[in-house]
Each structure stands twice: as C-alpha cells, then as structure tokens.
C-alpha cells in the first residue's frame, strides 16, 4: 500500500492538484460563497484522475505485484490526503476568522456564509459528495471521469446553494453565527458531518473495490 501511495504522489499527482489547495484561502474572503473553495480543491483532485487516465496508470498499476484492491485503496488514500490538508487549513482559517478577526468590519457585515463550524460541516459534505459520486463513480469503469465529475459538480452546486440559503431562513440564522450560544450546536453538526464523511467514504471505497475487481481493463 505504501508503495502504491508513493506511486500516486510521484507519478499521478499533478502540480495543479497541489496548486488548487490554495483555494482554501477563499475562506478568508468576505462577501464570497466560501464553500466554492472546497469545490476547487476537488477540481484539483479531479485533474489527477484525468491525468491518471491519460497516463494509463490503472493498467500500469494492476500489472505491478500488488493486489487490485490496494490500487483502489491507494487512490482513496491520496484523495483523503488532499482533503485532509484542505480541511486542516480551512479549519485553522476558520478559527482565525472566529477569534482574531471576529470584529473585522467586512466579516461583521458579511451577507454570505461565515467561517463557522457549520461551514466546516458543509466542507465535509462537499468532500463526501466527491468521494461518493466522483471517486466511487470513476471505479465503475476505471476510466470514465467526465460523467462522475458532472454528477459531483451538480451535487456540489446544490450543496453550496442550500448552505448559503439556509442561514437566511428565519429560525436558522444561528447557522451563520460565528460563536456565541450556538457554537455547541454547530460543533454537534460538525461531528455529525464528520461521521457521515467517514462512513460514506468507507462504503464508497468498499463498493469501488468490488467494482474494480470485476472490471475488464
């Protein structure tokens, strides 16, 4: 597994995948739908999968002395690495916005989604959609990337739209409160999102392994 992971990073990962991690900095921009940054991180990972196809990586990998299931696992581990890096940076930026920059004018009057634990929960849900719809969809054929990414794109657009709309609905404005009395509830939502992310990614990986074992390459 570790060798396959090394191969994933050395041969399959493009500079654009690393570069688009910088999209998490959008978290700091007021008056902007900051959840779009998460979508852009996923777009960077998508480029690696596209490159994987162009490079015949799957055939190269299955001819190596490895188990087919490990080829799938290594891809998921790589995806989780990038999502993990993006999430940690996003979380740090969220904490900075909620504490050191809490009183900054543009954030106080921000009409869009604030950086809060609720936002972090939404980040995890976008990653969940990517892992299930795109990565899981890719392993139906191990070469088609377009349709799975389109499905993810639609789901991500809906998630961003819903997340941005919800906190404008009377009674749900607490979702956009950066701290205060609602912090605990938002943290509960974050934990729930983390559980959904973990369970859905695990199931997606299991299903992908089964699919990949049956595919004729």
């Amino acid at each position: 597994m570790s060798k396959l992971f090394h191969k994933e990073i050395s041969l399959c990962t493009q500079a654009v995948t690393w570069g688009l991690l910088a999209a998490v900095l959008l978290t700091l921009i007021p008056g902007y739908p900051i959840l779009v940054g998460t979508f852009l991180v996923c777009l960077g990972i998508f480029h690696s999968f596209q490159y994987t196809n162009e490079s015949n990586d799957i055939l190269y990998s299955v001819l190596l002395p490895v188990r087919k299931r490990d080829v799938v696992r290594a891809k998921y581990v790589k995806v989780l690495l990038f999502e993990g890096i993006a999430f940690v940076i996003t979380a740090v930026l969220t904490v900075i916005r909620m504490t050191l920059m809490a009183d900054a004018g543009p954030y106080v009057t921000n009409p869009m989604m604030n950086a809060t634990p609720y936002f972090l929960a939404c980040v995890l849900l976008v990653f969940t959609a990517f892992n299930v719809l795109f990565v899981g969809g890719f392993f139906k054929t191990a070469w088609k990337v377009g349709m799975p990414f389109l499905r993810f794109g639609i789901a991500a657009f809906l998630l961003v739209a819903i997340a941005e709309v919800l906190h404008h609905i009377p009674g749900l404005t607490f979702l956009n409160e950066p701290g205060g009395a609602w912090l605990e509830l938002q943290l509960v939502m974050l934990v729930l999102a983390a559980l959904i992310f973990a369970a859905a990614t695990w199931i997606s990986c299991k299903v992908s392994i089964k699919r990949f074992e049956k595919i004729d390459l």
Partner: peptide, 29 residues
C-alpha cells in the same frame, strides 16, 4: 507477478515522465 514481466508492446504509460522517474517508482515494487 514478482516473477513475471509483461510488455504490451511499447510502453504507453506516463509518457511525459522521465524514464529515471519511472524506474525509481517501479523498482520499489
């Protein structure tokens, strides 16, 4: 697979990576 080698004609994977890099990764397996 440790004991066999397969070549489907010409190498058609990682066409833009240097041979040195391909060898460096392949040998770890």
């Amino acid at each position: 697979k440790q004991r066999i080698g397969y070549a489907g004609g010409a190498v058609d994977f990682y066409k833009r990576k240097k041979i040195r890099k391909l060898i460096e990764v392949t040998k770890t397996f």
